[in-house]
């Protein structure tokens, strides 16, 4: 059996169509669960309506809005979160191994080899034993 949970509240508010009203009437005659739920909803509705009406303080809404904004955009919270994130990133970066430096000995040798293709200047250029880094 399909229960009518949502339609019961609408029925109590008198906002159902005639066809829906007939459906609810027929259903609660057959379904104990929905009949009890309808009764419970009706009691709650009556209880709420019996509460006294109070005037709302004039500054309640602005105060609530201000408090909400302070909670949502408090700079100190953002700064703390950003500092924590930056610290984590920095610590991670520092923990990574240093990139290996370029081997200048290899590069110098390559320049010397290429220069030796140009002309007979071999004995004049980039030929210094013990100078490799």
């Amino acid at each position: 059996m399909t229960h009518l949970d949502l339609l019961l509240s609408v029925y109590l508010d008198g906002e159902t169509t005639p066809e829906e009203s007939r459906l609810v009437s027929q259903h609660i005659g057959e379904c104990l669960r929905c009949r009890r739920r309808l009764e419970a909803l009706n009691e709650a509705r009556t209880a709420v309506r019996s509460l006294p009406m109070l005037d709302m303080p004039a500054d309640l809404v602005p105060a609530a809005v201000t408090e909400t904004r302070q909670r949502r955009w408090h700079p100190a919270r953002w700064a703390a979160a950003a500092a924590a994130a930056a610290a984590i990133v920095t610590a991670t970066a520092l923990a990574l191994p240093d990139p290996e430096p370029l081997d200048l000995g290899d590069v110098t040798r390559q320049v010397g080899a290429r220069a030796a293709l140009d002309l007979g200047a071999n004995s004049l250029k980039f030929v210094v034993p013990g100078a490799e880094r």
Binding site: G105, D106, R109, Q110, G112, A113, R114, A116, L117, N122, F126, V127, V128, P129, G130, E132
Partner: peptide
């Protein structure tokens, strides 16, 4: 123990027993 050898397109260096060589084309 430090030797350099340079020929057209070739450069070799040694330090002790360790020899490094580079060959280029152009």
């Amino acid at each position: 123990d430090s030797i350099v050898r340079v020929a057209p397109g070739l450069s070799m260096t040694s330090a002790g027993d360790h020899v490094e060589a580079t060959l280029v084309e152009s």
